[in-house]
Computed example of a mutant assay.
Amino acid sequence: MRVLAAMSGGVDSAVAAALAVEAGHEVVGVHMALSRNRDQFRTGSRGCCSIEDAGDARRAADVLGIPYYVWDLSERFEDTVVSDFLAEYEAGRTPNPCVRCNEHIKFEALLDKATALGFDAVATGHYARVVDAPHGPELHRSPNEAKDQSYVLAVMGPERLARAVFPLGGYASKDEVRAEAARRGLSVSAKPDSYDICFVADGDTRGFLRSRLGSRPGAVVDTDGNVVGEHDGAYAYTVGQRKGLALGRPAADGRPRYVVDVQPTTNTVVVGPGELLSVDRIAGDRAVWFSGALPDDGWFDAEIQVRAHGSPVPARVRAVPDGLEVELTGELLRGVAAGQSVVVYRGTRVLGQATVSRAWRGRVAG
């Protein structure tokens, strides 16, 4: 099988490429240049796509003895992932750029280009498993719970999953992967993991948004409409946020307040007590379902997850046109924001995914 190995310059993708070679595939390594203004070096563990990362990927490819190329996907990345990130925050929603990157870049632009060039599959260093089943391939969680990435991969859907290879799917810890890299003589074996949003290398998301969207002063109000503070742009706030509110008037009962709503049309941020953040109903749109995942009709029991490293909670789920509906059957979820991904699981298996459009409290308190 001809396999295109996506090589970021980190240890995970290097070991994934090595395992693809070891499996007997014809492997070609590709580094995706996603930033228009790449730095020479990363800032510690922040960011990615630096010239240093491209060099590390090339050295790994040399050790493995495979061809290596750099593909400039920066314009596509800017037009899809970054533009979506800005538009979602501007609309008062909370996006997950890693989900959009997997959707539009790694398993759309990269995979489609690989297919056009005659490759059978794309291999990446994601921590997830593909399990063959009679109805088609299934996406499952990684045994490495701390690194599991099935949540951000759920958006890829069944057709793209059939052309994806995740060689790290069986590894239970990152230490095992680093040991594998060291054993193979890969210099990235001790390289720090990257974290945070890759295109916000300094970690200052609010500063990045302000640099792109400008200053837009407005009011912070409580749930009664009283002005309790000011902000420089409602787009910089997300439901559930507590820090950085700089409220001029404390709550009458002295309790902490959280962002409970962002209203972009009026450029208003609404704050209130923490109990207003608890929800047991979720609606999602742009749903993606995997083969054999849905029952014939109606509600079915499952677990749902709304954050990349959040805990799954029991729920009843049903598919609706272009979306899904969720009713939590156990604990409430706190601070669910429109724009987040809601992923549906049964055990380790991913059934489907949608983008949260609304979350609310339907269950009577008590």
Score class of each variant (00 low, 15 high):
304 I>E: 01
177 V>P: 06
160 R>W: 01
365 A>C: 06
328 L>R: 01
294 L>T: 05
213 L>M: 11
170 G>Y: 07
216 R>I: 04
159 E>Q: 07
190 A>Q: 09
202 D>K: 05
114 A>L: 06
289 W>F: 07
296 D>I: 05
265 T>D: 15
130 V>R: 02
273 P>M: 02
310 G>Y: 00
280 D>Q: 07
108 E>T: 11
364 V>G: 07
221 V>C: 11
198 C>N: 13
216 R>D: 13
342 V>K: 09
235 Y>R: 11
151 Y>H: 15
118 G>T: 00
222 D>M: 03
90 E>C: 04
313 V>T: 12
328 L>G: 08
320 V>L: 01
181 A>N: 05
338 A>S: 15
91 A>N: 10
155 V>Y: 01
148 D>W: 12
184 R>L: 05
162 A>M: 02
32 M>T: 04
359 A>E: 12
166 F>G: 06
5 A>C: 02
142 S>E: 12
145 E>Y: 02
180 E>D: 03
200 V>N: 02
77 F>W: 11
165 V>R: 10
176 E>F: 05
108 E>F: 08
219 A>W: 07
111 L>A: 02
322 D>T: 13
143 P>K: 08
245 L>R: 07
122 V>D: 10
127 Y>L: 00
89 Y>G: 12
224 D>T: 13
9 G>S: 14
239 V>R: 14
173 S>G: 06
366 G>V: 05
246 A>R: 14
353 Q>F: 03
227 V>W: 10
159 E>S: 07
10 G>L: 00
135 H>T: 13
229 G>M: 15
238 T>L: 13
175 D>L: 14
340 Q>K: 11
233 G>Y: 11
305 Q>A: 03
121 A>E: 02
180 E>P: 04
268 T>N: 12
299 W>P: 11
177 V>W: 10
259 V>Q: 06
88 E>K: 12
335 G>R: 07
